[in-house]
């Protein structure tokens, strides 16, 4: 069951399974400015093959990185597996509740709160509704870390393995 201690660390296997199972992401707090963290994450996840639906009421109707911006999660017409929250911890609670309400109609599986964003009460509500929750992490950093890309920048991925990684050639 969800508890505070459970969200202090996530196993590599768990993060890998979540990142491999999702295909579409609603990114709440998406910025149209190229040098904002949310823009970095959106662009990176697009390159990795994820479909991103940016959500930002102030930019609704415009486009970010070729995708139409929506004012809210409910306005996104398609299904999406994950809600990625680029807002502060308090606001993340209300966004998590929206995700719980839309869980069945949008087929949402995972609520992800970005680095420094953590709302344990909201996580408990989401988990009680059957959603997976990851907090205080960045999907770009975790995807890069688990796929050896973070290592390219001199970072400590903490991944130790003598297995030959499978790569798709072509």
């Amino acid at each position: 069951m969800g508890g505070i201690d459970n969200h202090d660390s996530y196993s590599d296997a768990y993060l890998r399974r979540q990142l491999n199972s999702i295909k579409a992401v609603a990114l709440v707090g998406a910025s149209p400015n190229w040098n904002r963290p949310s823009y970095f994450v959106m662009k990176y996840l697009q390159e990795k093959g994820y479909r991103i639906y940016p959500v930002n009421p102030r930019a609704a109707g415009t486009e970010i990185l070729g995708e139409k911006v929506y004012a809210s999660l409910a306005e996104i017409p398609d299904n999406y597996d994950m809600v990625d929250i680029f807002r502060n911890s308090e606001v993340a609670g209300a966004i998590t509740d929206e995700a719980i309400d839309l869980k069945d109609s949008k087929n949402i599986k995972l609520v992800w709160m970005q680095l420094t964003v953590r709302n344990d009460a909201a996580a408990l509500r989401a988990e009680a509704a059957g959603l997976q929750v990851i907090m205080d992490r960045c999907p770009k950093i975790e995807f890069g870390r688990l796929n050896c890309e973070l290592s390219w920048g001199g970072f400590n991925s903490k991944v130790i393995t003598a297995k030959r990684r499978k790569v798709r050639i072509g």
Binding site: E127, S151, A162
Partner: peptide, 27 residues
């Protein structure tokens, strides 16, 4: 409900293991 996250074994290897393996996976 989330599975109880656990620390990966890879994050708990000893110094001697890490001095040989950290950062270097088979190409």
């Amino acid at each position: 409900m989330s599975p109880k996250p656990i620390n990966d074994k890879s994050q708990n290897y000893g110094f001697e293991t890490r001095m040989i393996h950290a950062g270097a996976q088979p190409e």
